[in-house]
Amino acid sequence: MNLMKKLLYKRIRLVIPALGICILSTALTLCWNLQLSAIINIVNSNGIITSGRIIAAIITVIACMTISYMLSMISGWICETMAHDLRMGYAGHFTSLSLLEIDNLNSGEQLSMLQNEIGDIYAFLHNNLFSFADDAVKFIATFIWMLWLNPSLTLLFNIPTVFITLYTAYASKVIGKAVHRSQQANAHMNGFADTLIAVFPILRLFDAAQLIRAQYNAALDQWESARVIEENTRAKLMSLSAVLSCIPLLLLTLIGGTQTVKGSTAIGTLYVFINLSGNVSGIMMNMPGRIAMFRKFSADMMRIEPFVSIQTGRIRK
């Protein structure tokens, strides 16, 4: 992940404001939920919702909309810029090779690396990098906010989260291994495309299509079984993870409901706890998949690292 560190360091002037916007976005979400809690308490007590309260809520909605737009724009800009840096680093590598190294280059393989590995890395950066950061900020901020509102309810409904975390760590490790095996089988199978075209004249001259088909089919069978194992593992572990993730909601309703009936918690507070429980347990539920994706990303990064030369030092372009 040295390459990732270099990429992030190079664009640190963009990354820090983006993290700031992430924090602001979470703060606004919490503010919105605080307002909702107050409105729900009024609804339940048959009280009056004042126009001032409604205007404040509308302002929060507009602020949330603006911040969502800004966060998406800045995170997109960073990812695109990092992808550009990566492409340039990859291109720069070829200009640093000696003639002998160039003679041994397989252009099909190199182009396929640009399309596959760098493509996968780009997809990960684009879909996950800032959603990782955003989730982390959401998780921490929501948890602290919940603790401030109702410490006993927060701690009690989140006790299973600790076990879920341990389980997800185990699950992601198992899924990661399965993903790695299926990726290797996939790379082996994809390599046949290049081989097929390279040996095509021999295939025709020596009537050897059956030989390469048999080899390809064997590689395909390997990929199929690796992929089936990967998906079965994922389905089993993630289904269990989904069941486990229902426990916090269940406990929240059970304990929070009892507290509400006994008068120690307001119904509005319970409602926003349920609303925001996704920011804590929901993030947990997605952990195995996320970590598995991160492992794949890290493997892709390691594969291309020798072929990418990133100039350290912050630049503006």
Partner: peptide, 9 residues
């Protein structure tokens, strides 16, 4: 980003 803003709104 517009989509994200619209979703919030």
């Amino acid at each position: 980003a517009m989509e994200s803003g619209l979703l919030s709104l």
